[in-house]
C-alpha cells in the first residue's frame, strides 16, 4: 500500500492560485435531446432510402420512381406486378411483401 507520510510540510500555495478548485467528479453535462438531434443530423449518412436506388434500378416494370426533390421512393402499384425483387434486394429489408386484400 502507499505510504504518503513522506510528504514534507506544505508549501504556500503558489502556482495553482489562478486555477479554479476542481471538483473531483466533475463531468460535462449530457446533451439535451435537441443537441443530440442536431449533432446526429451532421452525419452525412442518409436517413431514408434516398441515396439507394437499388430497388428502382432493378424493378423490371419501372414501377419505382424517385422524387427528385425529396429523394423519397415511390412505388406505383398500378404498374407493379408483385414480383418481389425490390423486397429481396433492399439492403435494409425495408420493403416487405404483404398479401393484398
Amino acid at each position: 500500500m502507499i505510504n504518503l507520510s513522506c510528504v514534507r510540510e506544505k508549501r504556500p500555495r503558489g502556482s495553482r492560485d489562478s486555477v479554479v478548485e476542481i471538483d473531483f467528479d466533475r463531468h460535462d453535462p449530457l446533451m439535451t435531446s435537441e443537441e443530440a438531434q442536431y449533432e446526429a443530423s451532421r452525419c452525412l449518412g442518409t436517413v431514408s432510402c434516398e441515396a439507394c436506388d437499388v430497388c428502382r434500378l432493378l424493378c423490371p416494370d419501372l414501377a419505382i420512381t424517385r422524387d427528385s426533390l425529396t429523394g423519397e421512393i415511390h412505388i406505383d402499384l398500378d404498374y407493379c406486378k408483385g414480383c418481389g425483387i425490390c423486397a429481396a434486394v433492399c439492403p435494409k429489408g425495408a420493403i416487405t411483401m404483404v398479401l393484398e386484400e
Binding site: G45, V47, C49, A94, I95, M97
Partner: peptide
C-alpha cells in the same frame, strides 16, 4: 410469382429504412 395477376404489393417501411448500406 403469381400466375394470375398480382398477389402481393411492396410496402416501404420508412421506419426501418435508415440508410441503405448498399
Amino acid at each position: 410469382m403469381a400466375v394470375e395477376g398480382r398477389t402481393h404489393k411492396p410496402v416501404v417501411d420508412r421506419d426501418l429504412c435508415q440508410s441503405c448500406s448498399v
